[in-house]
């Protein structure tokens, strides 16, 4: 076989780059959403369930209407509905938001699996990709550079969110509610309202991430489609120090790491793939250990975040 068609070892960086863009997008959307949620002082571990509901809803709507964009929107809406339930529940006095999140994972995945049974066989119209690899004649590069518009949407969201937190009045409200709810309340801000909006907006983004999974990459509805990505995105936010743009880099890193295992096997390195597959988690933990300190609160950490005392 000629070099024109096979990449050999070059396939590894190409796969990691492509994987970062392809596999990183759902992480990006979920972690951006979770970042907003956590900035307001609540954790939503239930995004795993939102991801599944989003994936199922998007696929089902796309199958029935033939319009993937309608599916995308429906997924976001479905995410918001679950987000609303979580917002109500997690803000009750004495209810822990981690527990509420796990209950939401069970409830969300139950609904997604229940109503998703009918949509495993049909094929849905997929979201289009934008070709950035037109300059190359090589199919691998063209495929790696075929990028879903949702990726750019995600990038725009994190930069907007950064600006939102730093320079807008509403961003200040969210940060105030997350850091010092009492002070925020004294300022006349509705803590309940701000948190509910933040959780619902975060769940909307996670719903879109679900749609990305079922309508773009891998582009299929199956019950195992999320594979813990919603949970990991929660860790990513901390990895990114509650910084929206940091979420972008963290997501690309995770997406790329996810592609590393299979890519190495495809060039013949095939031992210890369980440990290879766990490398993103080990890496995250290491980075946290190296950068955290018990002397002071992490920069950017919302003061009222229930999960961290």
């Amino acid at each position: 076989m000629t070099d024109a068609e096979s990449l050999g070892w070059w396939g590894v960086p190409i796969a990691v780059l492509g994987g970062a863009l392809r596999g990183g997008t759902p992480f990006l959307l979920v972690s951006a959403g979770e970042c907003l949620t956590e900035k307001s002082g609540k954790t939503n571990l239930g995004l795993e369930g939102v991801l599944l509901i989003g994936a199922m809803t998007a696929y089902a709507v796309s199958v029935n209407t033939g319009n993937p964009w309608a599916g995308l929107l429906a997924a976001g809406m479905a995410g918001m509905v679950l987000g609303f339930i979580h917002a109500v529940l997690a803000q009750q006095p004495k209810v822990n938001d981690i527990a509420a999140g796990i209950a939401m994972i069970i409830f969300g995945s139950g609904l997604a699996f229940f109503f998703g049974k009918a949509y495993i066989q049909p094929v849905a119209e997929q979201l289009p990709g934008i070709e950035f690899g037109w300059w190359s004649s090589h199919p691998a590069i063209r495929s790696a550079l075929r990028i879903c518009p949702l990726f750019f949407f995600g990038v725009a969201v994190v930069f907007l969110m950064q600006w939102f937190f730093e320079s807008t009045r509403w961003g200040l409200f969210v940060r105030a509610v997350g850091d010092k709810p009492d002070a925020a309340r004294a300022m006349g801000i509705s803590v309940w309202g701000v948190r509910t909006c933040s959780i619902m907006a975060g769940s909307f983004l996670a719903g879109l991430a679900g749609a990305y999974l079922s309508l773009y990459y891998p582009g299929s509805w199956t019950e195992k489609i999320s594979g813990g990505q919603g949970m990991i995105a929660v860790a990513l936010v901390i990895f990114a120090r509650w910084n929206p743009v940091g979420c972008l880099w963290a997501s690309l890193l995770f997406g790329g790491a996810q592609a590393l295992g299979p890519a190495l096997q495809s060039v013949g390195i095939s031992s210890y793939y369980y440990l290879f597959n766990a490398s993103p988690y080990i890496l995250t933990l290491l980075v946290m250990v190296l950068t955290c300190t018990n002397k002071k609160q992490l920069a950017g950490q919302p003061g009222a975040l229930g999960a961290s005392s």
Partner: peptide
């Protein structure tokens, strides 16, 4: 220990430790 000595958030570290433990078992 990570929590006490390094201030690492225990919820997230224990979540990651789940994935690592399962990978170790499989390996």
């Amino acid at each position: 220990a990570l929590k006490h000595y390094r201030g690492v958030n225990e919820t997230i570290s224990s979540l990651l430790m789940n994935f690592i433990g399962i990978a170790l078992l499989n390996q």
